[in-house]
């Protein structure tokens, strides 16, 4: 009898815990979206920010976030996919492979502030570049590469062995098999992983504080020469991203509408991450369906 009561109580507790977790998410999202979405307007998204007056927008921060994300992925995806290929196809079990695995594990568990410090030491001070977009992107690469390697390795390993055998048995080299059979079959998995990683990179701030900086020079969006000082495309300029902006405004902002800006920026950030999430699921399954059509 007693044990039955205990069982019922325990079940109730577990249901309550599940309810609490769902409630936390619901509360967080409704808070961000109800308070933030009304702040989002075309003007908010396209006006440059102001450090003293009210009514500033997030134009440059938004652009910087997207641009840094783009450059980071441009470096990380090829590196990560190649690393994944190495781990899945070429690494022979042994000490070297174990060491590389430990390295990946270590990079993955580095606190992002430590990654930022390393970036400051190497990409800002040692190179003499100062705060730059490329420095930020390289720091984010270190932060992101273990994820991309793991995602690619898993995706390649999950391709049925028969596919690889079929290609090798035709007298095709291992590398060509990887390029033309394994990677295309692993593509949906890699794509999904890359988009989810993008969401993580988009929201990252600590690694960027000391590498891409807390400021953005005056930008002229008509100036597309990447070597010009005022060009938004210049990768050797400092760039405050949206996530860093939220932190900076809250920590040392002096404009009168801090709350509004922070609310709006947070909503944009969360919506972006949400979009990345949905896009990853939808694109991944759509591509997969298209590739295996007819089965």
């Amino acid at each position: 009898m007693n044990s039955k009561v205990a069982d019922r109580i325990a079940t109730g507790v577990f249901i309550a815990i599940a309810f609490i977790i769902v409630a936390i998410l619901a509360a967080l999202f409704s808070f961000i979206l109800f308070r933030g979405v009304p702040q989002i307007s075309w003007e908010f998204l396209t006006t440059p920010s102001s450090s003293v007056r009210a009514g500033g927008g997030i134009r440059d921060q938004l652009f910087n976030s997207i641009y840094i994300l783009f450059i980071t992925m441009l470096i990380t995806v090829p590196l990560g996919v190649c690393g994944g290929i190495y781990m899945a196809e070429y690494a022979k079990p042994g000490k070297v492979t174990n060491f590389i695995r430990s390295c990946i594990e270590m990079l993955a568990s580095l606190p992002s502030i430590v990654v930022g410090m390393f970036g400051l030491l190497v990409f800002v001070n040692t190179t003499g570049w100062g705060y730059t977009i490329i420095g930020g992107a390289l720091a984010l690469t270190i932060f992101n590469i273990p994820v991309m390697v793991r995602v690619s390795e898993d995706a390649i390993r999950s391709v049925p062995a028969e596919m690889k055998e079929a290609s090798l048995a035709l007298g095709i080299t291992h590398w060509h098999t990887i390029k033309t059979v394994l990677i295309p079959s692993a593509f949906p998995g890699i794509l999904t992983g890359a988009i989810l990683a993008s969401g993580r990179v988009f929201g990252e701030a600590a690694a960027l504080l000391f590498t891409a900086g807390l400021s953005t020079p005056r930008l002229d969006y008509l100036d597309l020469n990447p070597f010009s000082e005022t060009s938004p495309l210049n990768i050797f300029r400092p760039a405050e991203t949206l996530a860093v902006h939220i932190w900076a405004v809250n920590t040392n902002g002096i404009m009168p509408d801090i709350r509004e800006i922070a609310n709006g920026s947070s909503a944009v950030l969360v919506l972006a991450v949400l979009i990345f999430n949905l896009l990853a699921r939808w694109l991944g399954s759509a591509v997969h369906k298209k590739m295996t059509a007819g089965k």
Binding site: V22, L196, G199, G203, A243, V244, W247, S266, V270
Partner: peptide, 24 residues
Amino acid sequence: VLQPVIELLVGIPSVVYGFIGLTI
């Protein structure tokens, strides 16, 4: 129900957590 909730919680950037902590 819980799986997507957890995945969305992972996705929320840490500055947003900090900001909500600060305001609530």
